[in-house]
Amino acid sequence: MGLIPNFKNIATRSPWIYRINAGSCNGCDVEMATTALIPRYDIERLGCQYCGSPKHADIVLISGPLTVRVKDAVLRMYEEIPDPKVTVAVGVCPISGGIFRESYAVLAPIDQYIPIDVNVPGCPPRPQAIIAGVAKAIAIWRERL
């Protein structure tokens, strides 16, 4: 009985992050990698860690305007992430299409296909902005757990 809330407390300290590139220009991906990997920004202080498989993820960062070509793959990958998950749209591309808006090749805004929880506008957003977005996502994720 007492064990279950304990597990919950431990688990809420360390959400794992997964990154989906939905046709981004790579700008946002570089910033996300910077956020996670270099000691200057060090997102692991928030307990977050990047993981390589969607099946291990708690928070998913999506970049890119969802091009027609990657749509099926992105949706399939999104389905594989276990609930409860929190989705963060990184960059203006997934939020509105940004610079690619109204192109025949993109399906943005991405929240038509995937429920988005937090938006981080910017092209690309600076690492601090991504950290702020992830912090918001962690707050939402703790409520959902």
Binding site: D117, V118, N119, P121, Q128, A132, K136, I140
Partner: peptide, 14 residues
């Protein structure tokens, strides 16, 4: 001002 992150419900207020 760079901190524009917001929850999706506020999307159209930005």
């Amino acid at each position: 001002d760079w901190d524009l992150s917001h929850v999706n419900a506020d999307k159209f207020d930005m």
